[in-house]
């Protein structure tokens, strides 16, 4: 079983400070670490390898020299091989180009890995794009937002029982077989704390760096397809919508309705009659309220 894990160095969430007034993010205060979801992806890969008792874990990142930190963490945790992809122009790449570069690197090996793990999203832009795009470039099925993972041997073949996180608290249970790409949520597991010998070996390791532009299957012309970021804003709580007070009411009652948050009784009227009469009444009502 060959497993590849894609890692990213990202600001640790606890180090992100957003000015409450300007909404600006102070990048100087960032502490760059292995992205939390990616650490879980790596941990999941390592646990799977250990459970199967065979296989290898290949940790890959695309980033500048500082991001070798994350590969050292990966090595200390138990990755068998590590590699960094970098080209100065990559600093401007969007998620689709990054995914293409990762895909080109994985295709450069004689065969694709059996499983690919990615973090669901990074703590900085959180677009959640790289994993799915990578699966698309490699033509692999994918499961995103993994929050539960169990491996079983099913008549000599590996069967994965996967729990996926959906929106609004829904969960989806899936059965899957490799080859497959999984993007992992940061609650999947608790990444291990490496032993001292592993930590030391990782600190001393030399790391292979490859230029993605030199990869045969990579063309760095994906910029056109990238998402354009128009604006970044801090989320604000949605304002509570107040019903417009009934204009028939006295000013006193209207103010009362506004300051009670529109909790005064609704003014409903039941109209009875023939369809023509009802339509007339409806038009009259809409006109009266200024809708038509």
């Amino acid at each position: 079983m060959r497993i590849a894990v894609c890692l990213k160095q990202a600001p640790d969430c606890s180090s992100v400070y957003v000015d409450p007034i300007s909404g600006e993010v102070d990048t100087e205060r960032f502490v760059q670490t292995l992205n939390a979801a990616d650490a879980c992806a790596l941990e999941a890969a390592l646990r799977l390898k250990e459970q199967l008792g065979a296989g290898s874990v290949f940790a890959l990142t695309l980033g500048p020299g500082e991001s070798e930190e994350v590969l050292r963490v990966a090595l200390a945790m138990g990755a068998d091989t590590i590699e960094r992809l970098w080209h100065p122009s990559a600093a401007d790449w969007g998620p689709l180009t990054i995914a293409a570069a990762l895909a080109a690197r994985l295709r450069a090996d004689p065969s694709l890995p059996d499983l690919i793990f990615c973090g669901e999203q990074s703590s900085d832009w959180a677009s959640g794009t790289v994993g799915p795009a990578l699966a698309a470039y490699l033509g692999l099925p994918q499961i995103t937002g993994v929050i539960g993972l169990e491996a079983h041997q099913d008549s000599g073949q590996l069967l994965l029982r996967v729990t996926r996180r959906l929106e609004r608290g829904y969960r989806e249970r899936l059965l899957a077989r490799p080859p497959l790409l999984l993007t992992v949520h940061e609650t999947l597991n608790e990444p291990r704390y490496p032993s001292l010998p592993a930590h030391l070996a990782a600190l001393r390791a030399t790391i292979t760096v490859r230029d993605p532009l030199s990869l045969p299957q990579f063309a760095a012309d994906f910029e056109a397809e990238e998402t354009t970021i128009v604006e970044v804003r801090t989320p604000r709580p949605r304002p509570h919508r107040l019903p417009i007070p009934d204009s028939q009411l006295s000013p006193f009652e209207r103010i009362g309705e506004i300051i009670t948050g529109g909790t005064s009784r609704r003014q409903a009227r039941l109209v009875e009659g023939s369809p023509e009469e009802l339509a007339h009444e409806l038009v009259r009502f809409l006109k009266e309220r200024g809708f038509v």
């Binding site: 704390y193 490496p194 032993s195 001292l196 010998p197 930590h199």
Partner: peptide, 9 residues
């Protein structure tokens, strides 16, 4: 003794 597994140096 470091606070890691096999933590002796």
């Amino acid at each position: 003794q470091c606070r890691r597994d096999d933590g002796a140096l």
